[in-house]
Write a protein that binds this DNA or RNA. Structure first.
Length: 590
RNA sequence: CGGGGCGUAGCGCAGCCUGGUAGCGCAUCUGCUUUGGGAGCAGAGGGCCGGGGGUUCGAAUCCCUCCGCCCCGACCA
């Protein structure tokens, strides 16, 4: 039986000044964790119990689709050199040398190691598919650990890897993970959305992130409750409301207009008495292509969008196949566009004929496609054009979606004529599933024989869950829904204890005996119970019970004389009196 | 890495400007009273004032330097 009087639960009355986000404050105040350094935390009793609850759920679901391994976290450089990531991981990887001077690193992910096992051991298509997973500590030298447990340098990850014969097989492994992840997060009591994610530099074909909406999050996601659409803002698209084009003026051809001092879009729109949606804006960049050898090529890029839209640099990078963007400085604007910021436009530019070709790459956002009689800069100080029609008056290197979707725009999959406004909000990523393809299997030379006796490369997927992030996301979610001041309660499945029995006065032998008896009964019924038998005033124990996040509290006090105890459901904010003999059944069906 | 803030008792803070050898609240320990929402009274313990160097008769306080932590940005398979 767990007796609070003999446990180490160092609750704090005041929040350490370093903590800002709700989950960090909670974890410190409730005595779940203590900080060692930036992004390094020790888990104490309550924190570790919660993590154990979470990993038990993860194991339970993962064991249905895969097999648990445990790989080393200390890894030789050689594998990473073979995959090429010894260099591309850069400073995010913790590196060290052993006594012989050999290079080692601390694992930040385990594609290489799992693939190494696969290439040594898998020989035949008869052995596939395989799904191998582990729950293990990962190390990442983050440039800026922050927000308590949300971004740390050492954390637990459930990572799994699938090996299949072909894309259909990969689709099945991916779907199995999708279903398992949904089951895991649901059992952990989280409200989450699965979003389309940017596949990024990994080059995979499909990728999905599992996100929990919270103000403490670092990602922005767009979702529609109507259609179920959900995507990371890096990838989200939207259906735009139609815009009425302006009527042409004069002969309908581009007309140069003197616009002194009208550089900002709002000023230009006011000057012409138009909406920013009738304007073309330009953002000019120098893109750097990621050269693995370090020989990065600089490429000038002019991006044109509707005046009221924002460039999505992740999308733009994807279109360009580049690794890095920075905006042009004044000299570069003069060199490539011939005009100053605020007066840039697409007319008369000498553009690259193809992506990667020499000259200025002109990227036009799809929202400008089919538009007519727009206003844009003239690449000349204090001048704009009107009557500008894309396609007729200027051309481009590439037409692509490079803008950010905005809150309130309709989801892209909304049927025509129906409303499906997007909600855009901050979110924290708790899981990620990813179709890797052949990259690692090829780089490391994993091959199996197919039914025809030919060597083929297995296709891989990789899938991750941040264990601590399940806890922090659940806390953030509970904090968002909790009335302030009274503490918060965790979902029963991941709370360190399901029930706390608060004996209001342990010097009353009858109350203490009743509390102990009830705790024994609950324990026998398989309920995870904590008996608060401390010799403290009732108020102190109530406050502590509220603070540590246990969702159900049983008050053993005055009403025992009438054969009753008070059961407080902290998540529901309700309390009821229950007869002593019915407590177990009451809490079981709760 | 750029910008900002902060390191004084377990936690929260004052003292620093204007140098004179450290203080408050909570927590902890002891005693008495109290006992259903962080009790009251009385007493006690606890500090290389982040480290190093300098100025000075004297440094928590002024100067230099290093380290650490937090926030914004950059970054984040």
């Amino acid at each position: 039986m767990h007796r609070w009087s003999s446990l180490f639960v160092p609750t704090l009355r005041e929040v350490p000044s370093d903590a800002e986000v709700a989950s960090h404050k909670f974890l410190l105040r409730a005595g779940y964790v203590r900080q060692m350094g930036a992004g390094l935390y020790s888990f104490l009793l309550l924190g570790q119990r919660s993590l154990n609850k979470i990993t038990a759920i993860v194991r339970d679901e993962m064991d249905r689709i895969g097999q648990e391994f445990l790989l080393p976290a200390l890894l030789p450089a050689e594998l990473w050199q073979q995959s090429g990531r010894w260099t591309t991981m850069g400073e995010n990887m913790f590196r060290l040398k052993d006594r012989k001077g050999a290079d080692l690193c601390l694992g930040m992910t385990h594609e290489e190691v799992m693939t190494d096992i696969a290439r040594r051991e898998l020989r035949s298509y008869k052995q596939l598919p395989q799904i191998w997973y582990q729950i293990q500590t990962k190390f990442r030298d983050e440039p800026r650990p922050k927000s308590g447990l949300l971004r740390v340098r050492q954390f637990l990850m459930k990572d799994s890897y699938s090996f299949d014969m072909d894309e259909d097989g990969l689709d099945r492994s991916y779907a199995l993970h999708d279903a398992a992840y949904r089951a895991i997060f649901t059992r952990c009591g989280l409200e989450f959305v699965a979003v389309e994610a940017d596949s990024g530099a990994m080059g995979g074909s499909q990728s999905q992130e599992f996100m929990v909406y919270t103000e403490a999050g670092e990602d922005l996601i767009a979702s529609s409750a109507v259609t179920g659409y959900a995507a990371n803002l890096e990838k989200a698209t939207s259906r735009l409301a139609p815009v009425e084009d302006l009527a042409p003026t004069g002969d309908g051809l581009p007309e140069l207009v003197h616009t002194p001092g009208k550089a900002a879009i709002a000023d230009v729109a006011a000057f012409f008495a138009i909406s920013p949606a009738q304007d073309i804006k330009c953002v000019a960049y120098i893109a750097h292509t990621e050269g693995a050898s370090g020989t990065a090529g600089a490429q000038p890029v002019a991006a044109f969008l509707r005046g009221d839209h924002m460039v999505n640099e992740t999308k733009l990078l994807g279109v360009l196949g580049a690794g890095e963007l920075r905006t042009m400085n004044g000299d570069e604007l003069e060199q490539w566009l011939g005009g100053p910021a605020g007066y840039l436009g697409p007319l008369g530019l000498e553009r690259a004929q193809a992506l990667g070709g020499p000259g200025l790459t002109v990227v036009v956002d799809r929202a400008l496609e089919g538009r007519r009689n727009l206003v844009c800069g003239a690449n000349r100080l204090d001048y704009h054009y009107r009557n500008v029609t894309p396609g007729r008056d200027f051309r481009w290197t590439v037409l692509a979606d490079i803008r950010n979707a905005r809150e309130g725009e309709d989801a892209p999959d909304a049927p025509p004529g129906t409303a499906a406004p997007l909600r855009i909000g901050k979110a924290v990523e708790i899981g990620h599933i990813f179709k890797l393809g052949y990259r690692y299997a090829e780089a490391l030379g994993a091959r199996v024989l197919d039914a025809n006796g030919r060597e083929v490369t297995p296709i891989m997927g990789s899938y991750g869950i941040g264990i601590e992030r399940i806890l922090t996301a659940a806390i953030e979610q509970a904090a968002a829904g909790a009335p302030d001041g009274n503490g918060l309660a965790l979902p029963r499945a991941i709370a360190p204890f399901e029930v706390v029995i608060t004996v209001t006065n342990v010097r009353d032998a009858e109350l203490l005996a009743t509390g102990e008896q009830l705790a024994r009964e609950l324990e026998a019924a398989g309920i995870d119970v904590l008996l608060d038998d401390r010799d403290e005033r009732a108020g102190v124990k109530f406050k502590d019970a509220d603070l540590v996040g246990i969702p159900l509290r049983v008050n053993v006090g005055k009403k025992v004389a009438e054969g009753q105890v008070e059961v407080v459901d902290r998540r529901a904010g309700k309390s009821v009196d229950v007869a002593l003999g019915e407590l177990v059944t009451h809490l079981q069906k709760h």
